[in-house]
Structure formats: structure tokens, C-alpha cells
Design a protein around this nucleic acid. Structure first.
Lengths: 140, 140
DNA sequence: ATCGTTAATGAAAATGAATGTCAATATCAA
DNA sequence: TTGATATTGACATTCATTTTCATTAACGAT
């Protein structure tokens, strides 16, 4: 089963109906190798389903985010792009030039977090780690 | 010399003129122990300088950011709050409840980054690390 | 297969943060 | 003190996102 099928099933289990515009948006996001913002998703979705409205894109994003299937990616240039959600301790590595996004696991932060909790008295519940750079293709 | 005086001097060296509304904004940001968004800064600045316009807040933020004295802090609820910029390898620890922000140094990411570069072929140029939790006061 | 409930849709209007314009004002070097 | 010019605040504008609403479509029940 492909990722988009899995997502569609999860949406349906959640009470959502499977419609053509929704399928288009889900497929785009499930297959994307980069974070996409609502405008970009809208443009791509139109190719498959010309009648789709931008509002539907927003609404589908909302649902997918609520199900933790996608999440917003924060960058200097803007914070409105979405990417498939991190699983477990995954973080993200982004190409500053072409936008290519890679998930990676690499959680060596336990020690740092424990030490900080002791020193500051904070109770740390979440962390964001993002790396930015140039992908192989964009270094040329 | 206080931090706001230092910032004002830097702005002046950069060719900016020191005006009352600008002083108000700078003082608020230099002394804040939490990230503040333009609206919050505007409200606070009005108390010292009732005639100030919101536009001036935006313009002052722009200048301070260009001088790397403040930087935008990204959070779930919004990405429009500003905090004094990180120095060197500082990162930020935020209280999810009251917004209190703490800078800390703790850069043990070199190994992770080197390993990732080798594995992915990316050239990594920057990283963001943010921790979220509850400050001592908000745990009660 | 058909029906009926109700979720979902797209168009249009509304909202609201951020930016651009501009005449009046204030800073600060000379 | 003066004058060039950066800065100001009011107002208008832009543009992404949300809201509203009548219509359409999905899908469980029959």
C-alpha cells in the first residue's frame, strides 16, 4: 500500500470522506520530496483536478495536520510549507536552494536535555532540530 | 552600558537616527525575557510613547534584524515574535506556557553534522535547535 | 441500486497582518 | 542655527488565510 493510500485510509477512519480534490492533495504531499506551501500544492493539484479551489487545499492541510500525517516546516523565507510528519525522533535536513527535504534520525540530545533541565529547572517536553545546506545536486 | 544603549549606539553607527519611538522599541526588546510579536511590542511601546504607530514598530524590527541584534523565533503558535539574537552557538529554550525564553550554549552537533554530510552528500551550513517545555514557575 | 443524511465543495466576501505612499516632522552634522 | 534628509504616523493597499453559504457528492442504511 502506498503512502497516500495509507493516509487516505486514516482520513476515512477518522470520519472524512474521500473526494477527488482531497485525493489529489494527499497524493501530492505523500509523494513530495520537498516541503510545499498551499499555493504550490494548489497549482499542482489543479493539474489533476482543475476545478479544485484553494480553500479545499487549506482544509485538507488542516485535516492532515490534525492527524499528524504532515507538519509545517519552518524556514527563513517562510513557515507555510508542509512536509510529511517526522516519525519518532526524525529531524529534517533542507536544501536552501532547491528545497529538497530529507528526514534523518539522530537523537543524541538526551544528555544535553537532561543537563539543561538540571541547570535551568525547566521541564523540557519537545525539541526541534533542523539542518540547512545544499543538496548534492545544488553544490555543482 | 546597558544592552539597549549598546543597540542604540550600533544603530546610530549604522546611520540611523535616534528617535523617541525607536528608543521605546529598542528598550522593550533589549530587556525582554521572552519573544515578543509586533503587536505586543506596539502595545508596550505605546505606554512609553502613546503617539507611536505600528508601522514604526515594524520598521524598527527590520533595522534591528538587519543588524543581527534580534531574530525571529519560530513556534507552533506563530513565527512572528522576536528575541535578542543568538550569539555564537547559542540556542533557545522556551516556556510553552508563559513564553519565557532562555538562551543556552550546547553545541555537540558537530559529530552528527559531519556524519550526515558524509551519508547524504549535503553540505550543511546552518542549524536550528530549539527546546520547548515548562519553566520552573509554570510547572507549579 | 436508491435514498437521505451530512460532510465537502467552490465562489465570493471578510478578515487581518504586513507593506507601500506621502506630506509633515525631527535629528544631527556642519 | 540651519538645512539636508532620515523618520514619523495616517492612510491606502496588498495578499494570504478564514468565513459564509448555497450546491454537490460521499457513503451508510435500506
Amino acid at each position: 500500500m502506498s503512502l497516500s493510500e495509507t493516509w487516505l485510509n486514516q482520513m476515512q477512519s477518522d470520519g472524512s470522506r474521500l473526494t477527488a480534490p482531497r485525493r489529489a492533495v494527499v497524493e501530492i504531499l505523500a509523494e513530495a520530496d520537498q516541503a510545499l506551501d498551499p499555493g504550490e500544492i494548489f497549482e499542482r493539484a489543479r493539474r489533476q483536478h482543475p476545478a479544485i479551489g484553494l480553500v479545499t487545499v487549506y482544509r485538507t492541510l488542516e485535516k492532515l495536520e490534525a492527524l499528524h500525517l504532515i507538519e509545517r516546516i519552518h524556514q527563513h523565507e517562510g513557515c507555510h510549507a508542509y512536509l510529511r510528519a517526522a516519525q519518532g525522533h526524525e529531524h529534517v535536513l533542507l536544501c536552501e536552494r532547491c528545497g529538497k527535504a530529507l528526514r534523518f534520525v539522530g537523537d543524541d540530545l538526551e544528555d544535553l536535555i537532561t543537563a539543561l533541565e538540571k541547570r535551568t529547572g525547566f521541564l523540557i517536553r519537545e525539541h526541534w532540530l533542523q539542518l540547512f545546506g545544499l543538496c548534492p545536486a545544488c553544490q555543482a
